[in-house]
Design a protein around this nucleic acid. Structure first.
Lengths: 120, 120
DNA sequence: TTTATACTGAACCATGTGGTTCAGTATACG
DNA sequence: CGTATACTGAACCACATGGTTCAGTATAAA
């Protein structure tokens, strides 16, 4: 459970970087080597390796080294827990604002009846 | 567009901390002061103020100070862009793996016909 | 065997993060 | 008035992040 939370932490953190989101989108089109990715995102190999490492640690990317080249592909994680958290938050948000609407409506009613009884 | 990306960056970063996700869930139940939140999440007022500041900057929380107390409530942002990104990623992931399945199927077919022509 | 390619790791750097303490300010209460 | 409450800002801390350079190692190609 704590472990679960940490995974969500790590995934959201991984997604908070535009380059890493770009890498995921890129790997959605086709697999790529570190050199490919470094070229496309204008970064040193070392820099790209680090980003791939972050994505790999969260399970969003897997890699395999054959000869000199390390091929990167989308990993097994599908952001289910993250999608679920966001969806449940959105429902919470709706519920909360419905509730506030009700309170506002009540206030308006009270206000109206005050005006009825005590206009001024 | 760049600005849009930065907002997504900031939201995902804000969500990468379990305490901040907890604060959002808590505020979904009812509004709360900094003192309330600091007590519930066992943290100093200053520490909590910082978390609220992060959430406020991303629009996930709004606050209003009346007298001595600052009341925090859920803000206008509903994580639409973030939910959309994750959903589109999940579709990409499905498509990519369907494609890989097809490749594997092709390989199996080729392999089978090789066996037909050249059993060994 | 030499040379070029592809990656890797260590070390460094500036900046950000998640937390603290301490010293305030502003407001409410008696 | 004096005192307690609620927050705020500055400063500090250890550590993480996003990037770099530089010096390797391992493999492929000529």
């Amino acid at each position: 459970m704590v472990q679960y939370k940490r995974y969500v932490d790590a995934s959201f953190a991984a997604l908070s970087d535009a380059t890493r989101r770009g890498i995921l989108e890129r790997l959605g089109r086709s697999d790529a080597s570190i050199t490919d990715l470094a070229g496309e995102f204008q970064m040193t190999l070392t820099g790209m390796k680090k980003h791939v490492g972050v994505l790999e640690r969260t399970g969003l990317v897997t890699t395999e080294k054959v000869g000199r080249v390390r091929t990167c592909r989308l990993g097994p994680r599908r952001l289910e827990a993250e999608a679920a958290w966001i969806e449940s938050y959105r429902r919470l948000w709706e519920a909360r604002f419905d509730e506030l609407d009700k309170i506002v409506a009540d206030l308006k009613r009270t206000d109206a009846s005050l005006h009825d009884k005590n206009p001024k």
